Computed example of a mutant assay.
Amino acid sequence: MKSITIKGSERESVGKKASKALRNAGKVPCVLYGGDKPLHFTADELSFKEIVYTPNAHTAVIDLGGKKLNAVLQDIQFHPVTDKILHVDFYQLFSDKLVTMNIPVNLVGNSPGVRNGGRLLWRKRKLAIKALPDNLPDFFNVDISTLKIGGYITVASLLNDDFTILHPDSTLVVQVKSARNAVLIDEDEEEGAEGAEAAEGAEAAEASTEAKE
Rank of each mutant, 00 (worst) to 15 (best):
V142Y: 07
V142P: 13
V142W: 04
D143L: 03
D143F: 01
D143I: 01
I144N: 04
I144F: 00
S145D: 08
S145Y: 00
S145L: 00
T146A: 11
K148C: 06
I149G: 10
I149Q: 07
G150P: 11
G151K: 05
G151M: 07
G151N: 10
Y152V: 00
Y152D: 04
T154G: 06
V155T: 05
V155K: 01
A156C: 01
S157A: 12
S157D: 05
L158G: 06
L159H: 04
N160V: 07
N160L: 04
N160G: 05
D161R: 12
D162Q: 09
D162K: 14
F163I: 08
F163R: 02
T164K: 11
T164A: 06
I165E: 03
L166G: 04
L166F: 06
H167S: 14
H167T: 02
P168L: 04
P168N: 09
D169N: 14
D169E: 15
S170P: 03
S170R: 13
S170C: 02
S170H: 10
L172D: 09
L172F: 11
L172K: 10
V173I: 14
V173T: 00
V174M: 05
Q175E: 15
Q175F: 03
Q175I: 04
V176I: 12
V176A: 06
K177H: 04
K177E: 14
S178Q: 15
A179M: 02
A179F: 00
R180T: 15
N181M: 10
A182V: 06
V183A: 08
V183Q: 15
L184C: 00
L184N: 13
L184M: 12
L184P: 04
D186H: 05
D186F: 00
D186P: 09
D188Y: 05
D188G: 00
D188W: 01
E190F: 13
E191Y: 06
E191I: 15
G192D: 11
G192H: 09
A193I: 15
A193F: 07
A193D: 03
A193W: 10
A193K: 15
E194M: 13
E194H: 12
E194F: 08
E194R: 15
G195W: 00
A196H: 08
A198N: 05
A198V: 11
A198P: 04
A199E: 13
A199Y: 10
A199W: 02
E200K: 15
E200L: 15
E200W: 09
G201N: 12
A202Y: 04
E203F: 09
